[in-house]
Design a protein around this nucleic acid. Structure first.
Lengths: 199, 199
DNA sequence: ATGCAAAACTTCAATGCATGAAATTCGTAT
DNA sequence: ATACGAATTTCATGCATTGAAGTTTTGCAT
């Protein structure tokens, strides 16, 4: 499990991710070819595809991990915690987790988000991944409240919450507002999704 | 405007759409090549791209029209109608509009939906189009209630509603349930999005 | 009717993503 | 040391998409 083979694979994987990110930042997403990315990691073009299914996917290397984290969160409500409370806490957790330090890592994350928001194919891929994950999250939520939340209700709750936050955040970021404001917008959007529009 | 030139273009456009739909139904989306689609409409492969930007787009030929219809709806609230009421009516309108007759036209629509729901690239394209349209709808809604709904609130409301309905409908259809049930699910999802989860 | 300019179309060539198959190299357990 | 299997490379190919250049068709003015 921790042999040279494994370590080498992880190193190649990282090299591909970092090389791709660097090149995308330098020359743009479309302008960067797979051949260049592969060359930056010193592997053949063909090998790229044994690590990632597509050019887009190299920017979503941690999505499965994130989804599992979210699934765990929604699967374990505290005793007495209502679905609405759990979902509220879920958003709060996601917001606080998303602002780590400001080292090299964060620069990459920022670039990644910028690319995903700007390049249509990446945006589409992100929306697709998000959609699939919501289906899984809804099932997990329904299972966490057996007899109390059927699958349609859970789907509506999850879709409503994420749909609201997603659109509110995109609206503020599109306006060029700082991440600060986006966080506020996310909280307001979550309230609206969970409790309806203020009367 | 109604010259031979225009008419011919519309005929070619139709031929491409119908040919593509027929071929997709017969051999599947991936398995159908652009060359075959173009041949079915008796034009060159290159010409396809002066009608549609991509292979996917041939299935979304009416999206702009639909969006404009939706924009008009959300831009014209009845006097005294609250945002929540307007959004409720919006969903109801969309649901009733979507079940016309059962002629050849509906068969095509059904196949189209089936393809979009089944083929990942089409799903991604649909989600992307839907997302962009939601941004426009939110702005329209905000503009329809000046001073009462800011852009973030409008985005949250629109994202919440559409997110809820989208996920609830997909959940029921994924379970193989009939369109009937999907309609019900949509209504329940809209209620949850607009008023919050039932206590 | 005729000719002209613009619009639409075709042909040709190239690029880049993606994938399958066969041949080769590398890591590991024995 | 060696044999086995995993990972990689090489080779070949299909297909979507785009640019450029040349040809046909159409609308219109004469």
């Amino acid at each position: 499990m921790v042999g040279l083979r494994e370590r080498k694979k992880q190193r190649t994987r990282r090299a591909l991710i970092e090389g791709a990110l660097r090149l995308f930042g330098e020359k743009g997403y479309e302008e960067t070819t797979l051949a260049e990315i592969a060359a930056s990691a010193e592997v053949s073009t063909r090998t790229f595809f044994s690590y990632f299914a597509s050019k887009e996917d190299v920017l979503f290397y941690d999505s499965e991990h994130q989804i599992e984290r979210a699934l765990a969160f929604l699967s374990a409500p505290a005793p007495g915690q209502t679905p609405a409370d759990l979902l509220r806490a879920f958003i709060e957790d996601a917001l606080s987790t998303s602002d780590d330090g400001q080292d090299t890592w964060s620069e990459q994350t920022a670039l990644r988000l910028e690319l995903i928001m700007r390049e249509p194919p990446l945006q589409a891929r992100a929306l697709h991944l998000l959609f699939d994950s919501q289906l899984r999250l809804a099932d997990a939520l329904s299972a966490a409240y057996p007899g109390r939340l059927d699958r349609v209700e859970a789907a509506a709750a999850v879709g409503s919450l994420i749909g609201a936050v997603k659109l509110a955040v995109m609206t503020t970021l599109n306006d060029g507002l700082p991440v600060e404001q986006a966080r506020d917008a996310a909280r307001r959007a979550a309230d609206i999704a969970l409790h309806g529009l203020p009367r």
